[in-house]
């Protein structure tokens, strides 16, 4: 049992939401884009979506400037 976050193997925690996973990973950036198994997770759903076991999570940090 385990998940992959940005290519790093991490322990899977039952019933953990995206919000708590980001907290556990210490991803404290204010703005991130999160994909789980290639599906984009809207920011408003971070507190509701549960991270499934064996999933691949990608977190991208958005930085101002353009």
């Amino acid at each position: 049992m385990g998940i992959e976050v940005n290519g790093r193997k991490v322990e899977w925690v039952k019933n953990e939401t995206v919000k708590y996973l980001l907290r556990r990973m210490r991803y404290t950036f204010p703005l991130v884009v999160v994909k789980i198994n290639d599906k984009i997770i809207p920011r408003k759903d971070f507190s509701d979506v549960i991270v499934p076991d064996n999933s691949k999570v990608a977190v991208i940090h958005m930085i101002s400037g353009g």
Binding site: P30, L31, V33, I40, M62, S64, G66
Partner: peptide
């Protein structure tokens, strides 16, 4: 090609979904 991080994230989220 937007500037603010918040609007970038929102745009990516919306266009991909």
């Amino acid at each position: 090609a937007l500037d603010r991080a918040e609007i970038k994230a929102a745009f990516i989220e919306e266009s991909l979904s």
